[in-house]
Design a binder for these strands. Structure first.
Lengths: 146, 146
DNA sequence: TCCATTCCCATTGACGCCCATATGGTCCCA
DNA sequence: TGGGACCATATGGGCGTCAATGGGAATGGA
């Protein structure tokens, strides 16, 4: 298993730490990743988390455009400034900073959602709602599940 | 980590000093930079800060445009004439001068925003607004990180 | 001489590292 | 097939270290 799949909910302790699910940790350690890059999702109130190569991907995308264009400048603001690097502690936990809490609404529990190359941090109820809304939208457009 | 990434907010003390985040300081010292060059951003109410080589970067940008265009002329005025050199104190702090305060609106707290080759100083709430606007623009154009 | 800046040292509070405990699931063996 | 030992994960908390901050002393320019 070398990709982030499935989901799990863990509790934040008194110090503001939360364990990354074991399955996700082994994906990370298989990739030799010890520092994580986190940024605000562009659509949902969720934080996306992955290895530094996630940032590389954005930077390639920016490099493809005119590096001095307003669009590139704007994207740099989001990607460089809107992202943070965090480290896991020896037990595989990460800190829930205000940056993460404010954007997601997370308070006591964190839902980890696998997205393939990366995973996301959600406030559990917000995820339920977003999922229900997505289902509803899909249904109303007469689409079948993939 | 040899680039300015992530972000952090620090408080200005009674003497008008503020600590540069440790991660940024190590980037500077790795590059052997002791003196910093600061000037006003062209788009946002923020001060851009970097080593002296930051000048080269923006001179290239100006060279890319018509050197006699009003934009290039304006950039030259800001970069060459509007910039100031500042030094860090032994603890890694810098002074918040009126030059910086007036342009950014900074009063009690400073947000340090990594931009890759350089970093910026923002008034925290102004950053929130600019980022929200950037995200909104991106969303409406239907762009996604992946 | 006065004021502002620079340097030096003290404090404190957050974070990282360590070890301990709980909990749930699995495997083995009777 | 049921019980019990064992293991892995998640969680809780103590403690040391370092970054951020605050304030006093020294320095230098007006």
């Amino acid at each position: 298993m070398n990709r982030f799949l499935s989901h799990a909910t863990n509790r934040i302790d008194a110090k503001g730490r939360v364990s990354v699910p074991s399955a996700f940790r082994s994906v990370l350690s298989d990739g030799g990743v010890r520092e994580l890059y986190c940024f605000q999702d562009f659509v949902f109130p969720a934080i996306s988390v992955g290895g530094p190569e996630l940032l590389d991907r954005f930077e390639r995308q920016m490099a493809a455009e005119d590096p001095f264009s307003p669009e590139a400048n704007e994207m740099s603001l989001l990607v460089h400034g809107g992202g943070v690097f965090v480290k896991l502690d020896p037990e595989g936990r990460l800190m829930m900073t205000d940056f993460i809490r404010d954007f997601t609404g997370i308070s006591t529990d964190v839902m980890f959602v696998g997205r393939g190359d990366y995973f996301q941090l959600w406030e559990p109820q917000a995820f339920q709602k977003a999922q229900a809304a997505a289902r509803e939208g899909r249904k109303s457009r007469g689409l079948r599940p993939e």
